[in-house]
Amino acid sequence: MSRFLAAAAALLFAAMAPVPATAQDRLPPAPYADRQLADPGQEAEARALMEQLRCITCQSQSIADSNAPMAGDMRHQVRSRIAAGESPESVRAWLVERYGDYVSYEPRIGTATWPLFAVPAVLLVIVLLILRRRLGARR
């Protein structure tokens, strides 16, 4: 996404800063950054989780969609922990413990996030009320 959006941003919303020449390290990616787990079930679990974790260094991408080295290292953590028998939820919890809710794209109901779930519920009620008023009135 980054290249598309950066380019689109440059064009659409022009006053873009020249992309700083971010120096890259010369180490190869971590072993499980781009290597699937042998067990397809575990790999599917890992893949599903990686799509829901936010790459910490790249602003708005999941670690499953990023070329950033840190995203690769995070994928390695996810795959190797799941291969070692951890559940996806405990891997997520491990990261949330360190980075807060920011790291997970799946908000959980909590003191800071309950409106995310309350508002759609209220919307549903409003929608049903409107439908009742518009459609059920003249029966």
Partner: peptide, 14 residues
């Protein structure tokens, strides 16, 4: 820390 393991464990973001 060749695979950012400790960095992730610390909650460091860069």
């Amino acid at each position: 820390d060749p695979i950012s393991e400790v960095q992730l464990a610390l909650g460091s973001s860069g």
